[in-house]
């Protein structure tokens, strides 16, 4: 637990008849920039709310920097060290940028005036502007300013780049990378933008139906997965492949997503007298799509 910023064990959350989380377990090491991936309704936002004490787990336990997330007093201490940007990005519409900063500054004991000035300048926000008059991009910038200036050791971000144009999106991503590098903080980033996660994160957690399907270093993950394409003189039997995560067969060609058993699968293809065997790296998107694909659509 010592090396973990977030430590979640068998976390479950039920809303009436709906099971939002079903024994979710994962850990996020301190100093990492971790992507939190999943389909809509997979349980990402619920997990973030549980981590922040906005909702309570039905079962299981969770810790942030060793503090229990389901104890009110510890939750307040957690929020002293944790900043959050919600998916909606909504702030108080009747305030100005300056007033929002004042409220956050006064509420957060670790507020960093130097970071406030830095991001106010970087994001080109006008202090006197009404929050209700901010564009989507500027609202996101203000949210990030409020989160980054808190001097937090952990940032929980729910879809931070949703709805942003390419320029602002890039600006936000760079700000996050820079923050982790200079402030030695941890970022846990929920997103549907796989290419962004691939661009900035060093680690990912993929969940589906309230369970973690995969977690680990992004480089290890990508190094472990390969696309193997083999062409045969005749169509091979479909059930002759072990250790294959996904298989698509088109005539005499078989395309397989393989995890950890690449050499075995290649050897098996050659033993079946494949005329060509090609091994290619895969993207995070390919891995993700395969993992969260419904069972009944699998080959």
């Amino acid at each position: 637990m010592d090396g973990l910023a977030i430590d979640v064990r068998a976390l479950a959350k039920r809303y009436g008849d709906t099971e939002a989380l079903r024994g979710l377990t994962f850990g996020v090491p301190r100093g990492s920039l971790c992507g939190f991936l999943g389909r809509n309704g997979a349980g990402k936002t619920t997990t973030l709310k549980l981590l922040l004490g906005m909702a309570r787990p039905t079962a299981g336990e969770g810790f942030i920097f060793g503090r229990r997330i389901d104890v009110e007093a510890e939750s307040v201490a957690i929020r002293r060290e944790t900043a959050f940007v919600s998916e909606s990005k909504d702030l108080y519409p009747f305030t100005t940028v300056e007033q929002m900063i004042r409220i956050a500054r006064a509420a957060c004991p670790g507020w960093r005036a130097d970071l406030e000035s830095k991001y106010l300048k970087l994001f080109e926000l006008k202090p006197k502007q009404k929050v209700s008059a901010l564009s989507r991009g500027n609202l996101t910038r203000l949210n990030l300013l409020l989160a980054l200036s808190r001097g937090a050791r952990l940032l929980l971000l729910d879809e931070p780049t949703q709805g942003l144009d390419t320029v602002v999106r890039e600006e936000v991503l760079q700000a996050l990378v820079s923050y982790v590098a200079t402030e030695e903080s941890t970022i846990f980033l929920s997103s549907h933008e796989l290419h962004e996660v691939e661009q900035i994160c060093d680690r990912v957690v993929i969940i589906d139906h309230g369970r973690a399907l995969l977690e680990g270093e992004l480089d290890d993950l990508k190094g472990n997965y390969r696309r193997v394409r083999a062409t045969f003189p005749q169509a091979p039997p479909a059930n002759s492949w072990n250790g294959v995560r996904a298989l698509v067969q088109e005539g005499r060609t078989v395309s397989m997503l393989v995890s950890g058993h690449v050499d075995d699968v290649v050897a098996r293809a050659r033993s079946m007298e494949a005329t060509t065997v090609a091994v290619d790296p895969v993207t995070l998107k390919e891995i993700f799509l395969e993992l969260v694909r419904p069972d009944d659509s699998r080959a």
Binding site: M54, R79, S88, D90, Y92
Partner: peptide, 13 residues
């Protein structure tokens, strides 16, 4: 809309 921001502040309910 802004309740999540409020609840994320380090202040008890």
């Amino acid at each position: 809309d802004s309740v999540l921001f409020t609840l994320a502040l380090p202040v008890s309910r």
